[in-house]
Design a protein around this nucleic acid. Structure first.
Length: 243
DNA sequence: CCATTAATTTAGT
DNA sequence: ACTAAATTAATGG
């Protein structure tokens, strides 16, 4: 390990740079779009922008929620580790969403862990200013409520199907989930390994790949490494419904 | 800087 | 669980 010597030419990196402007932000959330100019300036004063690399841990479950993380770009996985140390992915979070809202309102501790699936850019927003805005601006609060509720509905449906369906149905659901909700495309690249794919739907890695190759052999999917294409959507939906 | 090799991670059976 | 393939890190020039 090389330790850089501090001399007069070496500046300590300047982390004080604040977010440039929230008013002109091109990556605003629906909620932030309801804020007035002076409120956005308040947010700016209490925010910092940073980036994470693919694979980076962003939040550990159990840590305190001092800041809300707003995801400006990239994909993030939200997960927990069960008693058996097995990972369960709760959902894949895509851009323009706030991470950990249920933890903010339900507790002061993050109940879930977050890790970057791709390179990611974020803004940290102080929870105090966030709370303040919710109290002060009903439209903002309403939008936040909408996103939390949608999240909740989505996740319950996913977990329902997971607990009731067999392996093929779960895999089909996951593929449809990626195609419709995350990527909004017929074909896409899985943002993670087979292990993680299995962790998302509560299967073993072996079962997950077995089902994927079967779906490929049956001509329902095209699979090349992490690239997945839906060839026969009708059948896929059939499988999803059937179990 | 690039090339080679070693080590780790991932996929498939 | 094991093997092969792929990706990433370390090494040497």
């Amino acid at each position: 390990m090389i330790v850089a010597k501090l001399n007069s030419n070496m500046m300590i990196p300047d982390f004080s740079a604040k977010v440039n402007s929230c008013r002109d932000c091109k990556e605003k959330s629906c909620a932030a779009a309801t804020l007035h100019a002076n409120e956005l300036d308040q947010v700016r004063e209490n925010s910092r922008a940073t980036a994470f690399n693919k694979g980076d841990m962003m939040v550990h479950a159990g840590s305190m929620t001092s800041h809300i993380i707003y995801l400006k770009s990239g994909l993030v996985k939200e997960f927990v580790k069960g008693a058996n140390e097995k990972e369960q992915i709760l959902q894949i979070v895509s851009k323009f969403t706030y991470l950990g809202l249920p933890s903010l309102f339900g507790d002061r501790v993050n109940h879930y862990s977050y890790a970057a699936l791709t390179d990611v850019t974020v803004c940290y927003i102080d929870v105090n200013i966030f709370n303040q805005l919710i109290r002060a601006n009903g439209n903002f609060a309403f939008e936040i409520l909408i996103s939390v509720s949608r999240d909740s509905l989505n996740n319950f449906h996913r977990f329902m199907s997971q607990s009731q369906k067999k392996t093929f149905g779960r895999v089909a659901d996951a593929i449809i989930y990626f195609s419709k909700i995350i990527f909004e495309k017929e074909s896409f690249e899985l943002p993670f390994t087979r292990q993680e794919f299995a962790d998302l739907i509560g299967l073993s890695r072996e079962s997950a790949t077995r089902v994927l190759t079967k779906l490929k052999d049956d001509g329902i999917l095209s699979i090349d490494g992490r690239n997945i294409g839906i060839l026969n959507e009708e059948k896929l939906i059939q499988i999803s419904k059937h179990g």
